[in-house]
């Protein structure tokens, strides 16, 4: 499988990465080089093989459903580029 210019633009959009028209061609080449190389996985017979979900067999640890952290909104928002009274500030999204 290989990608064309429109697919590159679509994937960039899904990735939320702005891409100039001038960069599309180069990115297409790089993505195709990698995608062509991983094609070799099609040689492998994976019929009946379970996908690996964890490297060590382990029962998921559970904990009580209770609040055990929090209450410091100021710390949480301290690293935000723009924040206002412990809220993250973003461009207007609702008219």
């Amino acid at each position: 499988m290989s990608v064309d210019n429109d697919t590159v633009k679509k994937v960039a959009r899904l990735s939320r990465i702005a891409i100039d028209d001038g960069q599309v061609e180069a990115m297409k080449g790089e993505l195709n080089a990698i995608l062509n190389w991983v094609e070799q996985l099609n040689e492998v017979d994976v019929e009946g093989v379970e996908p690996m979900t964890s490297v060590v067999v382990q029962k998921m640890r559970l904990r009580r459903d209770e609040v055990n952290d929090g209450g410091y909104a100021d710390k949480v928002t301290r690293n935000a580029p723009i924040s206002d009274e412990n809220f993250f500030a973003v461009p207007k999204v609702v008219e």
């Binding site: 499988m1 990608v3 697919t7 590159v8 994937v11 960039a12 899904l14 990735s15 990465i17 990115m27 790089e30 993505l31 990698i34 995608l35 991983v38 996985l41 099609n42 492998v44 994976v46 093989v49 379970e50 996908p51 690996m52 979900t53």
Partner: peptide, 28 residues
């Protein structure tokens, strides 16, 4: 580039062909 590769292989229609197959190879 890696984010874009990752987004592509997880995108609709390609999950089985790429990610699921890779995870099966991982089991092998």
């Amino acid at each position: 580039r890696r984010i874009m590769i990752g987004t592509y292989v997880l995108s609709a229609g390609y999950y089985d062909a790429y990610y699921l197959r890779a995870q099966k190879v991982r089991t092998l």
